[in-house]
Amino acid sequence: MRDALWTALKTVNDPELHRDLVSLGMIERAEVEGRVAHVKVNLTTPACPLKGKIEGDVRAAVLSVPGIEDVAVTFGAMVRTGGQPALPGVKHVLLVGSGKGGVGKSSVAVNVAAALARDGARVGLMDADVYGPSVAHMLGEGGARVTANAERKMQPLTAHGLRFLSMANLSPAGQALVWRGPMLHSAIQQFLKDAAWGDLDYLIVDLPPGTGDVQLSLTQTIQVTGAVIVTTPQDVALIDAARAIDMFRKASVPVLGVVENMSYFVAPDTGLTYDLFGRGGSRKLGSLPMLGEVPIDVAARQDADAGLPTVLAHPESTAAQALTQVARNLAGRVSVQALSDLPEQLPVL
């Protein structure tokens, strides 16, 4: 019966990777005890957006095996890399960028990082917006100071289940940094290579707006898994978003998808939806995957000012649910990206 169980599991495909769970090496355990099958599936990310579908498909396939009357499905997760890790211990570096300021890029980066960490991933968040760092404030740690460990490496701070570094925690509050390109490059190098990030599934990097020195330093220094573009729907933002997409393509960084922020507004008193900036405008950017549409939300702004990601403060709100789905869709895109370098067949353990 065990052989029949494994044969049945070979008919179940990962809905994003479009290969069966057995050849992908995602089945850690498949045994039969009496008339009950016990199956453990290792997802390619703790934030798998289609976990429910995978469970349903596994149940249906296993229950088709004669003699099996019930199935207990459990899950683990193992984030895979397509090649060499970007940094020691860091499986994926993901850049969150925009063509212009004011589109809510940092808010998206913070909430995506927090959502991935809440789902069980090991997450780091690097604030690469050296001139206008805001990540520390949004995490409620604006007054914290970065220290060095025994190996004289910067020790990332921790907040809400993730590790982070920001220039706001290294320079005096309110002090402007008047730096030229070489100094920016040196700072980015230190954040990446002189910090004790530890073992991470994802390192989210909040980029400054535009297509300048920081973006070039990052893409030329380490292997980046991919980039996310944050934009608002109106044409004036889309023009600059297109420039950011072009920059990443020229730097050979895959663009994993687009987040349309401030996509719409739901009036709290009437429940009516208003497309203040032209919802869906980001689809003009072409065939890039749409990771999600995030509404304007007063509570999300208040949460950011209070130093608590809205996905944690108000997880049931429309904005928080949209941002959580963005995080899970992004994790799914990373899994697809990593698959391209995996062997066609993996051994069954």
Rank of each mutant, 00 (worst) to 15 (best):
A338K: 04
V79L: 13
V73Q: 10
G104E: 02
L162H: 09
T11E: 06
A8C: 06
G198A: 14
Y131R: 02
S252K: 13
D20I: 03
L218N: 00
V224S: 00
M26H: 10
R29M: 15
D341I: 09
L342I: 13
T44V: 13
A304K: 03
E33H: 14
G257S: 14
A196M: 11
V259Q: 04
V123D: 04
S252N: 12
R163D: 13
P309Y: 03
S64M: 14
C48F: 00
R2Y: 09
L192H: 04
G101P: 08
K91R: 12
V146A: 02
D275V: 03
N149Q: 09
V259T: 13
L218F: 03
H160G: 09
R35S: 14
L95E: 09
T318N: 07
M167G: 02
G257W: 04
G67D: 06
K250P: 00
N169D: 10
A47C: 12
Q190N: 15
V258G: 01
D14C: 15
Y202R: 01
V334K: 02
G278M: 04
L24Q: 13
V93N: 00
L312K: 11
Q189L: 14
Q190A: 10
K105P: 04
V110N: 02
P66R: 04
A115L: 00
L342F: 15
H160P: 04
E151H: 15
G161I: 06
K105A: 10
D235N: 04
V36M: 10
A114M: 05
P88D: 10
T225F: 01
P88Q: 11
L63G: 13
D57I: 06
K153I: 09
S134A: 10
V96Q: 12
L9N: 03
P208V: 05
P309L: 13
A267K: 12
L339G: 05
G67Q: 06
E293K: 05
A4Q: 12
G278W: 02
A244H: 13
G34M: 08
G271I: 04
L203S: 08
V112G: 08
G280C: 03
A128V: 08
A37V: 10
A331V: 15
A128T: 05
V298P: 07
P233H: 00
E28P: 13
D213N: 14
P156H: 07
A320E: 05
R152G: 06
A322W: 01
R35L: 13
A37M: 08
L177V: 12
Q189F: 15
V22A: 12
P133Y: 02
I245A: 05
G99I: 01
D57E: 15
A267Q: 14
K51P: 14
A117R: 01
T270K: 08
G161D: 01
T310V: 09
G278S: 09
A113T: 06
L5Y: 06
Q223K: 15
M26Y: 11
D194R: 12
L125S: 08
D240E: 09
Q190K: 07
L276A: 11
D341K: 15
A77S: 12
V311P: 03
G99L: 05
G83F: 07
